[in-house]
């Protein structure tokens, strides 16, 4: 018979809270770096110069074609072979950021392409420079268009943090699975773990919906 021992969870609350904090921290930092990197990668993907475009394309394809777990192992366990000694949390965040950058980049690229060519013509003929067109016309619109996609990728990255537990980053999954192993109270710990991720995903998507609503108030949804 399965019983739910809430007291056990309460006893470990400080540990759980710290794990939760680390999960959120890893997600936020990784998402932030990944978006910046993704924007650069997207510009590379759209570059007219093949010498730039092809390697960037290869980077994106490799990231998207291999499991995150392998990327993480390669960086964390394999890193020292090429002189890269990283703490688990550093390796985790770095791997997550690289992983996310490929997915964000594809979104950015699609967003850029979704803006009608005519608008760019109008901007060109009126004399805006290439950079001004990117910053003033393309990025603001692209951001609104791709918010749902950004939220999705961010949720996925948030969930991927659970995998960091495998290389002993003391985030939420690591903490709770650890408590489970110690006390055999897997039902309690894993339920709390699952619910926490559900809450995180829900919050992220609420936040995304809210931002989208705020930003797109006056935007033509049909563009």
């Amino acid at each position: 018979m399965m019983t739910f021992d809430a007291q056990l969870i309460l006893n470990h609350l400080p540990d759980i809270a710290s794990g939760f904090g680390i999960t959120i921290l890893c997600t936020l930092i990784a998402c932030f770096i990944a978006m910046l990197l993704g924007l650069v990668v997207a510009l590379g993907l759209m570059s007219k110069a093949k010498i730039l475009r092809y390697p960037v394309r290869l980077y994106v394809e490799i990231i998207r074609g291999t499991p995150f777990l392998i990327q993480l192992f390669l960086l964390y366990y394999g890193g020292p072979s090429i002189g890269l000694y990283l703490e688990p949390i550093e390796a985790g965040i770095f791997a997550l950021a690289c992983n996310g950058s490929a997915y964000y980049a594809e979104l950015f690229r699609a967003g850029f392409n979704a803006i009608p060519k005519g608008q760019l013509d109008a901007a060109k003929i009126i004399g805006l420079s290439r950079l001004q067109i990117i910053v003033r016309i393309q990025i603001p619109q692209m951001m609104v268009l791709i918010i749902p996609g950004l939220v999705n990728v961010s949720i996925i990255l948030g969930k991927e943090t659970a995998i960091l537990s495998i290389v002993t980053v003391p985030e939420l999954a690591f903490v709770l699975i650890g408590i489970g192993a110690e006390t055999y109270a897997y039902a309690e710990t894993l339920t709390v773990l699952a619910v926490s991720y559900l809450i995180l995903a829900e919050l992220t998507s609420r936040f995304g919906g809210w931002t989208e609503k705020r930003l797109s108030k006056y935007m033509e949804r049909s563009i």
């Binding site: 013509d121 109008a122 009126i126 805006l128 001004q132 935007m219």
Partner: peptide, 28 residues
């Protein structure tokens, strides 16, 4: 020396009418 008007208007949807008109005045 040239201005151009398109069949599909091509206004920038994230800016007000005034914003569309003043954008190049400010930036260019």
């Amino acid at each position: 020396n040239m201005g151009m008007v398109f069949q599909q208007f091509n206004l920038w949807p994230h800016m007000t009418a005034l914003g569309n008109v003043t954008e190049a005045l400010v930036r260019v």
